[in-house]
Amino acid sequence: MMDKPRIAVHKFASCDGCQLAFLNMGPELLELANHVEIVHFVEAGMVAPDAEVDIAFVEGSVSTEEDIERIHAIRKLSKQVITIGACAGSGGLQALRNLADGEQWLNELYPQPQYIQSLNNTHPVKDYIKVDFEVWGCPVSTQQIKQVVTSLLLGASPLQSKDKICLECKRQQRVCTLVTIPTTGTPKELENRQKACLGPITAAGCGALCPSVGRACYGCYGLADNAEPAALARRFEGLGLVSKAIAQKLLLFHSHEDALRRAAENMSETQEAFNGQ
């Protein structure tokens, strides 16, 4: 029998939520441990950051000088590098600072900014090293992690579907929050007419979580394939949203995506939206 593949889970600038997708497997994590050797996973108690591994999962964005060195080292130690989550994939929420003056924010937010050692901009992992596979989500789900790991263990390429949320939503026969106008319910529900849902441009994978409870998708799974953010932005204008609100919606999680930036930049007042002017 071959040696079990060795796995590491690394953390960069992030909230740790994606790593929970492993821990949330519960008893299935023990089943997984029969097939892999988890050598580095600080949140689960294994610490061996310098060990060579077959698969390195990376959570978080690259935000400091030290992060840059560390991500290069991980690449050298790992046969495959797989990013998990919005931060590692496109910079995540904290990449909003790339739209502003990082230096200025630092001085405004911290009483003693000289102790903060962060780069002015934060970057997705792929900006520094070759990434073999990206798992999208904020956070990624246990289901996605299981799918990726089992596929790799069986020697198959993991599924990489970046279809739109709408397909997932319609397959479940959920009600379209962007089309349906509520006519019964509490005054609050009635006040909420059609919702500015990002489902039509957002990649599936979450199971249409927010629309399935009647909320608008806010785009945490990243941009879908052949998405049309500019056309959706125009539809949001039709719903009565001002440019600033639309730009903020588009850029919240994945401001590093060129297509989203272009769509947001085409809306007027975008700069003010991020400079708080």
Binding site: E28, N34, P200, N226, R235
Partner: peptide, 26 residues
């Protein structure tokens, strides 16, 4: 938007894809 909603609600559209879901115990 290329969102595909028209095809999802169309009562005659029949396109589909297939995929495999491996079991965790392999």
């Amino acid at each position: 938007l290329s969102c595909g909603n028209c095809t999802m609600v169309c009562p005659s559209c029949f396109c589909h894809k297939e995929y495999d879901e491996p079991a965790l115990d392999l």
